[in-house]
Design a binder for these strands. Sequence first.
DNA 1: ACAATGACTCGCACGGCGTACAAGAGCCCG
DNA 2: CGGGCTCTTGTACGCCGTGCGAGTCATTGT
Lengths: 243, 243
Amino acid sequence: MSEQQSYPSVWTRPRRTRREQPSLSREQIVAEALRLLDAEGIGALSMRRLGSQLGSVATAIYWHVANKDELIELVVDEVFGEVKVPVAGSRAEWREAAATLARDWRAMILRHPWTVHALDEMVSAFHGPNSLRLSDEMLALFEAAGFDLLEADHAGKTLISYVLGIATSEAAALSKLARGDQSEREWIQSLWPSADEAARDHPRLRALYAAYRDADPGKNREDSFAYGLERVLDGIEARLPRS
Amino acid sequence: MSEQQSYPSVWTRPRRTRREQPSLSREQIVAEALRLLDAEGIGALSMRRLGSQLGSVATAIYWHVANKDELIELVVDEVFGEVKVPVAGSRAEWREAAATLARDWRAMILRHPWTVHALDEMVSAFHGPNSLRLSDEMLALFEAAGFDLLEADHAGKTLISYVLGIATSEAAALSKLARGDQSEREWIQSLWPSADEAARDHPRLRALYAAYRDADPGKNREDSFAYGLERVLDGIEARLPRS
DNA sequence: ACAATGACTCGCACGGCGTACAAGAGCCCG
DNA sequence: CGGGCTCTTGTACGCCGTGCGAGTCATTGT
């Protein structure tokens, strides 16, 4: 469909497939964009590339989508759809439900680290159906725990700010690694010169690096996330009206 | 210096200013880049634009800086330099010191909302001198409070993850507004259709929007940040060995 | 039966981008 | 005087997003 060889005769030219349905659709475009983003990161998503991946051309996309930003908004709302909010009937269940939500949200960001580079579009995507649902369900979760509406909003924002902050750092590092600038070995090695340099003026940093020297970085990130999550939940739980 | 008119005579042509010192320097380039970023956002920073702003051309910059990413790393470390960590002698002072640090850090991000789009470069910039100092001083702050090295690291990461997460959201919204896509009035109006839409399926969201209807958005953000900050500090403080 | 409309797709062109590369220009040291 | 060092410039390449007009169907109105 994309190759334009010149056919020698009308007869050999393939009859235009009757247009049973449009060859492009918004869903198809969004799906392929998501595939590209997950596979190769934000740098690989260009309208030209996306068009050819769809067996078409860049400009054809503009019928279905206003511009690239809008396309990314759609993809962002799509991945918001992957986060499910657990329902908690009792206050006892609330803490575990909130923790599960936080872990799922972080996992979603780490599955799609390019979201980190789409923050502008995320602002708009917050009006998408999936993020509206997410916000609403989260509000419900915190209300069920015993907060009134406004404090439920604040508490929820607190939790997701923590998740967003830490997952964003992780995702940025991971996607930088994944883009193949350097392997994990080289990454650590590139750290050591500045660590030595730092040793002169910053003894605490040196001690910290030494402590992390031979640890599994993935496990470190998990532990660090889990630690902070407990602290944030502690702080929020302390505000709950005593049962 | 950038205009290349042909002079009619050797005499009218300005004598090449003897090169007392190079006409460009890394410091100068970084400073001008920062000015551009603060004034017009990340979209306005192109090597060509920066070059002409410096009375030169884009390619001249590459003598002083390897590439655009490295330039941004330098600017990012520069703004890290704006954050000062208060020293806390006693445990009693720790909480206020940590809160001050968090507020300063957020203020820095809101002063330079483009940092939000430079996350990849921030990962590298974490090896810059200013961020090393920042990390070290923060570690010291949490150690002084009574944590051992590793928990000080975790607790510090928790606090800055929260700050980063919430300030990032704020900055993304602010810089999108600032880019003039729409005024604050239009922004709120553009919210209402989707709020009405949301009302159908998401009654809690509607109630929340109504509650925020006539409030000052700036103050809301302040309150929200302050609330979460207290919760996070509560959660961390609860882990301190009892005095 | 035929024309008109609307839904899509495509080709072309514009102005911008980062940056590789090579040629200069001014200066210092021999 | 001449070579080499430091720094600046011009040119060029291959990308990018997207506005615009022309083309290609399927459907609808007459």
